[in-house]
């Protein structure tokens, strides 16, 4: 289950992080003005979509497609959870990155512009390196969100307690384990493991908060 949680969180980060980077490049370099503002508003709006709605739509939109296209298993798999979860953590990462890039000294960008950098070069060579701390903070915060999420993995990952050997395997995360075991209210060995899982999760997210603090940023709970 630990492996399941880690695999899901890391893979989601691998999908969502470049996308967040791309969106910030768009907003700060390529698409200024109205379209940039629209994109930002969209990302802000994404934070307000309930997790359970993401999960529900994926169950009926994404899972049947995966089942058709890959013809492996039931479609409730690591892949389905990764795709949905990356959509869920995308706004968190993007907004942290964006706010860091916005706090940069505006003269930095003017200097780059004056030296004849194209917008993409400005972002790649000047803004991103200057916001390097924001880059780590965003990644760590996104990881924390991904590890802590319950509903997406509970609804989409299949919940078989096994080692995630492929993208199409059914996995169970620590968070889903807590929900599943307590919902059935058993008195077996599994019941004790719930508290271990809870402690592990708490320590993990505590470590995330500590890391963000060390990197000089604040977790604004976006």
């Amino acid at each position: 289950m630990c492996a399941g949680s880690l695999a899901l969180a890391i893979l989601s980060l691998v999908v969502a992080y470049p996308a967040a980077l791309g969106i910030c490049t768009l907003v700060h370099g390529l698409a200024r003005g109205l379209s940039a503002r629209f994109l930002l508003a969209l990302v802000h709006f994404m934070t307000s979509i309930p997790t359970v709605v993401y999960g529900f739509v994926s169950v009926f939109l994404l899972v049947p497609r995966l089942r058709e296209w890959f013809a492996v298993g039931s479609g409730f798999s690591l892949l389905a959870a990764v795709l949905t979860l990356s959509l869920l953590i995308l706004p968190t990462i993007t907004l942290v990155l964006h706010s860091r890039m916005e706090q940069l000294d505006p003269t930095l960008r003017l200097a780059a512009e004056a030296m004849g950098f194209t917008p993409v070069q400005q972002v790649r060579c000047v803004l991103l390196p200057a916001a390097a701390r924001g880059l780590t903070a965003a990644a760590v915060l996104g990881f924390g969100r991904a590890v802590g999420d319950t509903l997406v993995s509970l609804m989409l990952a299949g919940n078989a307690a096994q080692f995630p050997h492929s993208l199409f395997a059914s996995i169970r995360t620590l968070t889903a384990h807590i929900g599943l075991v307590l919902a059935t209210d058993s008195q077996s060995m599994a019941y004790q493991s719930v508290f271990a899982a809870g402690l592990l999760l708490f320590l993990l997210t505590g470590a995330v908060s500590l890391l963000i603090r060390k990197s000089g940023g604040k977790n604004r709970g976006l």
Partner: peptide, 24 residues
Amino acid sequence: TLDRLLTCLAWLSGGGTLLAVSLL
């Protein structure tokens, strides 16, 4: 090449996000 890659990534991710949310 790096510039071009980043440009591609930027438009792809922007478009992809828009597509995913509007699909939803």
